[in-house]
Write a protein that binds this DNA or RNA. Structure first.
Lengths: 227, 227
DNA sequence: TCATGAATTTAACCTACCTTAAATATGGTC
DNA sequence: GACCATATTTAAGGTAGGTTAAATTCATGA
């Protein structure tokens, strides 16, 4: 099913439900969706019922929600739109790293497939958006490293490369850029025993100079070990 | 009032109501709005009541509707968005003349003022869109020749310059381009006594070679006499 | 196993936008 | 001045998406 036939609300739900599990996290709950959209859990329940009736999600009451195959296809199409738009806004319109998310969030509901195809061609078929997130191609395939993990979950020490910085929070993006933590950068990480401390808020990173990464930023960054 | 605070439906109504009178036509009626939006007159009445309650239109039952000052400001902002977007789609994304209208129609509800400011700068503050329609500037002023008239309303003969080809109908745009009738072109018009014949469907135009302009195209073209 | 607190769903109600059908106002015409 | 066709409005009802408050289910610790 083409996502153009869905309402903007339906498009948003599918994208958020899909994105939750992109890096292996468990499926999203009603309450988390309510928080994400700034609405009530009651409203989320009603909306999920409608999506279930449309065959886009497989809803089991009181359980986290999961996408059907049709729902996942629409979701990936929306993620492709979002990430291509973010890339275009940065590359062609001079937007900053931390400005593009909200603009893309609105544009993705309005652009046609033609528009997406044109910017994809102009950008020469990019495979990652400005934050490092992989861009699904027109056939809904996308590169997805299996050994990625959150910087916040790293224990001990080692060398890593930054893959993705989450675009959900502009403040995280600004801080990450100030610290030089952009996709592609290599890091020598010395996280001490943060795992043992239980949600330790700080991770120590050694690059050109030693910097301390705030917990919120480490939580929003995906890194991959360099062998 | 910033049009961002309005619903897409409200934005559409204001833009269409304003556009109707841009070239001196009388204000638009309930029935014409219904036809334009492909909806019922009953629905138009309800929507106009809501716009009236918001202070955007001055509605007198059974009369054609007119905008308030606040409504006109929003309308002009939407027209500016639409025409800048059409220009950008043609100049930057390689859209054809006759493809841009629908895409701009959807994008204009989604783009931010920041987006509009960026494409305005990239295009170097254009004053006319691809069809020749004037683009209001950021202060909502726009160039508006007083002596413009529809090609269909020209009688007798004389020399004219094409100002605007309406973007409402892609078929008109395609035909106009095939005939060489694009904004800026000079025409020697010999319309015969079409005025006397009462809605004569054909207008004779002499340029490099004599061509006959279909009535629907002549109706959608604004021309200005060359002195 | 059972009480309890948190999460979720149900219920009742709201607005915006849309439908069709019925009522009503308007603008000519005789 | 009354009549008529047409345009417009009112009325009644539907869906999507939202609200708050009450009921219900789940997981869990005593």
């Amino acid at each position: 099913m083409n996502p153009d036939e869905l309402s903007p609300v339906a498009q948003d739900y599918l994208k958020v439900i899909w994105s939750r599990t992109e890096w292996g996290a468990p499926p999203i709950t009603t309450g988390e969706l309510a928080q994400r959209f700034g609405t009530s859990a009651a409203n989320v329940t009603e909306t999920l019922k409608r999506l279930d009736a449309q065959g886009l999600v497989a809803r089991i009451p009181y359980k986290p929600v999961e996408l059907t195959e049709a729902g996942a296809q629409c979701a990936i199409a929306m993620v492709r739109r979002h990430r291509l738009l973010e890339t275009y806004l940065v590359e062609a319109l001079g937007y900053d790293w931390d400005e593009v998310h909200d603009e893309a969030e609105r544009l993705e509901h309005a652009v046609s497939d033609t528009f997406i195809a044109r910017i994809d061609a102009i950008l020469e078929h990019p495979t990652a958006d400005p934050h490092g997130d992989p861009i699904p191609d027109a056939d809904h395939r996308w590169a997805h490293p299996e050994d990625a993990r959150r910087l916040a979950s790293v224990t001990g020490s080692g060398r890593f490369r930054v893959l993705v910085v989450s675009d959900a929070d502009p403040e995280v993006l600004r801080t990450a850029r100030e610290l030089g933590l952009v996709p592609g950068v290599e890091l020598d990480v010395d996280a001490g025993e943060s795992g043992a401390a239980g949600a330790g808020p700080l991770v120590r990173v050694l690059g050109r100079e030693g910097v301390e990464v705030p917990g919120s930023v480490a939580e929003g960054m995906l890194v991959r070990p360099i062998v």
